[in-house]
Amino acid sequence: MLAEQKHWSNRLFNTINYSLLILVSVVTIVPFLYIVAVSFAAPAEVAKGGLLLFPTEFTLGAYKYIFSTDTMFKGIGISIYVTVVGTFINLVLTSLTAYPLAKPGLRGRRLFMLMILVTMLFSGGIIPTYFVVKAFGMINTYWSLMVPTAISAFNLIVLKNFFQQIPDSLEDSAKIDGAGDLGVLFRIVLPLSMPAMATFGLFYAVGHWNTFFNAVMYINDSEKFPVQVILRQIVLLSQDQIGDTTSQQDPTDYLPQTIRMASIVVATLPIVLVYPFLQKHFAKGVLLGSVKG
């Protein structure tokens, strides 16, 4: 009797649990499917409205339109540049900071950590930060998108905890073999920290690729807009004139809506494609450092 009851409640539990999780997955994925479907669909089908997930008639009209001028190409190129160089700067500076701070004997370590924690809790705000960026002549340069965000205090603290878990004996034996501090960092500590580097690289890269607000504040020259700013003009300010309207392209090939959806796909796909390559490194074990604090 009791066993049967238990069996029954277990099944109820599982049914509810699986249903809820399937619901979460569907709600998450459907907007993406809809966007992709609309971006490829023929205008007539889109105009009917409703939840379109599988277009019956495919067209590349919206994509052709977006790429008929070089605005989008340029934006993507700039975003790739900022993401690659910016993430490199992030990783170098974050590990150069985390490594010394992971050493227990370092003088002033506590004070330094405190100074970093303060920046997490209190900041000068957008106006004074804007003045600093301006004072360095970074307005309208890509440096303004990479330097002010060079280190994330959160990533730094988690990486420091990760470095602390590396056994001291490895470092000691390298030092006996004559390696200096830089040698230990680059030849022992960093190779052992590849999962962590991949994880934080991904965190930083996503931030750079999606950077929007800083670009709006610091970049005024439309020739230098990263992809998210161009996307905003198309999607939110309804400036569809990104394409070449004088071209031979058949205007029944696209709608403002299919252009908007295709732009979203184009601006999102590159960073989503990075994820599977890093996923194998992306063990949640890395984040244990933040849990154990």
């Binding site: 150069l96 100074m115 930060t129 600093v132």
Partner: peptide, 23 residues
């Protein structure tokens, strides 16, 4: 070398985090 490693970072925090606080 340890202190040398920290130099760029001290400069970064000083300029881009404590600078705006002064501002």
């Amino acid at each position: 070398y340890i202190y040398l490693m920290l130099l760029p970072v001290i400069a970064y925090y000083g300029l881009f985090h404590y600078g705006p606080m002064y501002g």
